[in-house]
Design a protein around this nucleic acid. Structure first.
Lengths: 243, 243
DNA sequence: TCAATAGTGTCTGTCAGACAGTATCAG
DNA sequence: CTGATACTGTCTGACAGACACTATTGA
């Protein structure tokens, strides 16, 4: 769609299209998944890509990211964690002409199977290991990698892990998020001590949930803290398992 | 400069100018300083701003940042730490029309007084406390704040502090960087233990430098490590002193 | 009763904070 | 010698890793 003009201004500066692209992660069935769409139009027609689209006139970057999130997935962005990753602007990253993209990272609880939107023929939750070895359109593989790195890093020193859990949640569910994203097992006992002693990471609801088997687990909600101090230690030897 | 076209494409997507802006920090005379220019042209003529300029045709973002660094300061960017902060794109951030900017953070040792460049009437190393309470052009105050936050955070878990020191350096000089940027004193003894025990943060040259007064100090060079593990602890009570 | 998961208690090593004490220079 | 800064050593408390042990459910 839309031929992007690659207009030269007299002084050699560039006028370009600007897009937002979204790295949307969720945890489902013991794996971290990213939302990928099958492109319905050239370039890369039929190929896999991150959801995204052009920024509109009069629209801010965050605003554009929220709109694309709603359009391509039907998700209300206010329910998830959304933050900017960074801008990508290599001259040849889009064969249609000069295009800059601002990548966003979105984290949410196991989300509904998304609604195919404007540019999306179909959308799927793809396990990240699979996505990392897939051929993605444009420079989306690099963007995905940065998103993954950022998500992994942020689990350490912020409380975003809770963004992956539908509230209320058990500590086992929260721990599961860490284990899946870091690809390493955590000691349940030490995890509990850490999380419950950190100020305002989680707050107990006083209720509990009885699973099909085993002892009922206490339920918690997100606390008010954004930063986690001291951080959640990732085992010294930076072992990322498979990925 | 130059009138930026705010062309609407038929589908309402925007074509815009793209700039890079630089937050360049250095440590001098017991204060953290940022390079600000006095704008030579409208808008905000005569006002203070971060150095920066338009991205050119065929030029990548990092490349544009390096070029602007050289043009406006005469600094060879390969000598300093340069990383992207993030993109800013509020619709009304530039009165001339829709403009996106990609902010960069640059960290270097006490740098030469910069050469006034293309868009800069004059350039100064301004103490950050002063810059934070100044009226900066565009959204540059917000960009500066983010740069400062990022720099402070990165001292904790990376070895970038060494980027502020001309090599070779003493451990007192390196410690001074932390103290100035965090605005808190660090215990010299514990700092030494931490830095020398961390793998490849610094490596001893075997030489020493005799100051005007006091015992000579051993000299070190940057090590190969980028990440610092375990991190440099910032005292639990997040006290940022004045700033 | 057992299987399974939730949750508690405790030992140990590592490391940060505090600070006493020693070393090496210029005058 | 004094003053100043560089460097070493040591004690203590906080906390992570490991893991034994107890608690509460369904079948």
């Amino acid at each position: 769609m839309a031929v992007v003009n690659r207009a030269l201004k007299y002084d050699g500066t560039v006028s370009a299209a600007v897009t937002v692209d979204l790295v949307i992660f969720t945890v489902r069935e013991a794996s971290l998944r990213v939302l990928l769409i099958e492109r319905g139009k050239p370039p890369f027609e039929g190929g896999l890509a991150l959801p995204g689209g052009y920024v509109r006139v009069g629209e801010g970057l965050d605003q554009a990211a929220l709109r694309e999130l709603a359009e391509e997935t039907g998700i209300d962005g206010r329910e998830l964690h959304l933050e900017q990753l960074r801008a990508f602007g290599a001259p040849e990253r889009d064969p249609r002409g000069r295009t800059f993209t601002v990548a966003y990272l979105a984290l949410g609880p196991d989300l509904p199977t998304p609604v195919a939107g404007t540019d999306a023929a179909t959308a799927h939750w793809v396990p990240v290991e699979a996505a990392l070895s897939a051929e993605l359109a444009f420079d989306h593989l690099a963007i995905l990698k940065e998103g993954l790195d950022r998500a992994r890093a942020k689990l350490e020193y912020t409380t975003v892990a809770a963004a992956f859990c539908r509230q209320p949640f058990t500590l086992a569910e929260l721990r599961h998020v860490y284990e899946v994203i870091w690809g390493i097992p955590l000691d349940p006992s030490n995890f509990r001590r850490k999380v419950t002693k950190a100020a305002h990471f989680v707050e107990a609801t006083g209720e509990s949930r009885t699973p099909e088997i085993g002892r009922p687990a206490a339920l918690y909600r997100r606390g008010s803290a954004e930063l986690l101090f001291p951080p959640m230690p990732r085992s010294a030897d930076g072992d990322d398992a498979s990925v």
